[in-house]
Design a protein around this nucleic acid. Structure first.
Lengths: 127, 127
DNA sequence: CCGGATCCCCTAGGATACTG
DNA sequence: CAGTATCCTAGGGGATCCGG
């Protein structure tokens, strides 16, 4: 099964400009991006709600991350010009499609984290 | 469909010590880790081969990444004490299970990169 | 309440040279 | 060939203050 011949198998040469691996890594390689998508997967949220649910994120990083996702068309930002402004963030249809692969990753994590931890212990004991 | 109730919701509270999201992000958040696994998905490889296929990675980072993967039990390192030493890296069974979710991500990237680029252009034009 | 603008620190990680 | 050790700097990202 590990065979591979032609076509854009695996991750190809990671430094081609148009290499998908590069792009996707630039996007999800950033921890905050993934966490924001994770929270928004539960439904829309306001800035302060995101701030609270993603403990440890600074306003600067949260803003920056949301701008990036908005630019990518994965998140929609809606401003309600009320008295104190209200801003709501939600995943777009495109953004929602990203949840699936992310969930697969999370499931992998849940399924294998125990083994990984055990392996680490063995490794550390031997070193 | 975006409803959610109980259970380990997508990424939950990201700062619990045992939160899977945290762990998995620590692992795949790093670009080199993902690229190494991607290359090894094609089969075992020597240090210099990895070095060549993953253009731009420094020896320091490659070593560090491989050590991390070995510690996690995802990669097996075999040393052949020949004249010039020969060292071969290969995915373990556990490591191979990680290929699937990663592939899903890559497929997402391929499918949506065009839209993302288009969205960016629109966004940038408006700003 | 949302988030822009600044300052500033710290460390991830690249370059280089050396060893077994 | 397969690393290890050392040095050094770019910029990620936190803290803080301000404006709409």
């Amino acid at each position: 099964m590990v065979t591979q011949s032609e076509g854009p198998v695996l991750f190809g040469s990671p430094y081609q400009a148009d290499c998908p691996a590069r792009r996707i890594l630039d996007r999800i390689g950033d921890r905050w991006t993934v966490l924001v998508v994770g929270v928004l997967a539960d439904g829309e949220a306001r800035f302060s709600q995101l701030s609270r649910r993603i403990e440890g994120v600074s306003k600067k990083m949260l803003t920056q991350t949301l701008r990036g996702l908005e630019r990518d068309g994965l998140v929609r930002r809606t401003v309600y010009p009320e008295v104190p402004v209200r801003v709501v963030y939600a995943l777009t249809d495109a953004g929602r499609t990203l949840c699936e692969p992310l969930r697969a990753l999370q499931e992998w994590a849940i399924a294998h984290l125990g083994d990984v931890a055990a392996s680490q212990e063995v490794y550390d004991r031997a070193n």
